[in-house]
Design a protein around this nucleic acid. Structure first.
Length: 289
DNA sequence: CAATCAACCTGGGTGC
DNA sequence: TGCACCCAGGTTGATT
């Protein structure tokens, strides 16, 4: 599941090679990836354009095109964005191929067909951007803003972390890891968090995401970077998909519970349901580094 | 506003 | 070796 750190890794990998390159051709093997456009419409929107720059917004890879449109790519769960030489062997499940003027191509491969490539006009991009919450690693995302965003929210904190309008880029892996690092049970209501817990969660989110970027992402099932290599953050996970294993902090078995239709993993001792545990002294340490 | 659920999809794992 | 079955979850949208 490519989340913020995985997408950031891909963007950093491909930006130097594809910036200022012109798109010379497009091949579509499955038009369902194109968010409503036909293969012809999609090709017409891209061919001949120069890629001005490559950035990330939330879990989207954004290609800035020379006609001021943008291509927003979402990898969903099994999507991959691979940078290959045009004569490299085929990649399995390739749905869309974008050929560049330097003999390289961007291949969008997606087993599950949940990922999407959307062409956005400047106006559409503004809408798109406005619907997303703040970037958790940006300067603009400070403690005050986080506290403000939590105000009046009675939803469970885990649900809120997964809501892209609340904070952008967090998915199931890093929601669970951040809550563990902050010592907060995923079932807790946002409005029930103490000031201290809000601060801990704020720092945990940034620390967990930064650490995962340093590790070039988490490869649990299908994620690989733009060159097909795995990340290494799965070695540093404390709770995500660790059900039954001992908590790295206290040794109690990690629990799994479905929240908002997704698996939530946590330590019932270090992340108690009832708040006000006096034993909670400071932030939890993270396994590995 | 909050929670649940279905839909979109199919590879990969499990159990027999 | 084969096969039925189930699970994974990002996002959207409908319903309770």
């Amino acid at each position: 599941m490519p989340e913020l750190p995985e997408v950031e890794t891909i963007v950093r990998d491909i930006a130097p090679s594809i910036s200022a390159r012109q798109i010379t051709g497009v091949e579509v093997n499955w038009a369902g990836s194109l968010a409503g456009l036909t293969a012809q419409e999609f090709a017409r929107a891209l061919v001949g354009r120069v890629i001005r720059q490559v950035t990330r917004r939330a879990k989207y890879i954004i290609l800035d095109l020379s006609d001021n449109n943008k291509l927003a790519i979402h990898l969903a769960m099994t999507g991959r964005l691979l940078l290959r030489s045009s004569n490299a062997p085929e990649d399995r499940f390739t749905r869309v191929t974008i050929a560049l003027d330097n003999g390289q191509e961007i291949r969008f491969a997606d087993a599950r067909k949940f990922g999407r490539l959307r062409v956005l006009s400047p106006d559409e991009y503004i809408e798109f951007d406005r619907a997303l919450g703040p970037e958790p690693l940006s300067r603009g995302f400070d403690l005050d803003r986080f506290r403000e965003a939590l105000r009046g929210k009675n939803a469970r904190i885990k649900t809120l972390l997964l809501d892209q309008r609340f904070v952008a880029g967090i998915g199931n892996i890093y929601a669970d890891e951040a809550l563990f690092a902050a010592g907060i049970n995923p079932n807790r209501s946002a409005s029930g968090l103490s000031e201290r817990e809000i601060e801990q969660l704020y720092h945990a989110i940034r620390q967990v995401l930064s650490s995962a970027i340093r590790d070039r992402g988490t490869t649990f099932d299908s994620y690989v970077d733009a060159f097909g290599r795995k990340g290494s953050h799965q070695l540093g996970l404390n709770v995500y998909r660790q059900e039954g294993k001992p908590c790295p902090r206290c040794g109690a078995p990690i629990k799994r519970q479905v929240i908002a239709g997704r698996g939530a993993h946590f330590c019932p001792t270090c992340q108690p349901l009832a708040n006000g545990s006096a034993s909670q002294s400071g932030r939890l340490s993270q396994k590995g580094r």
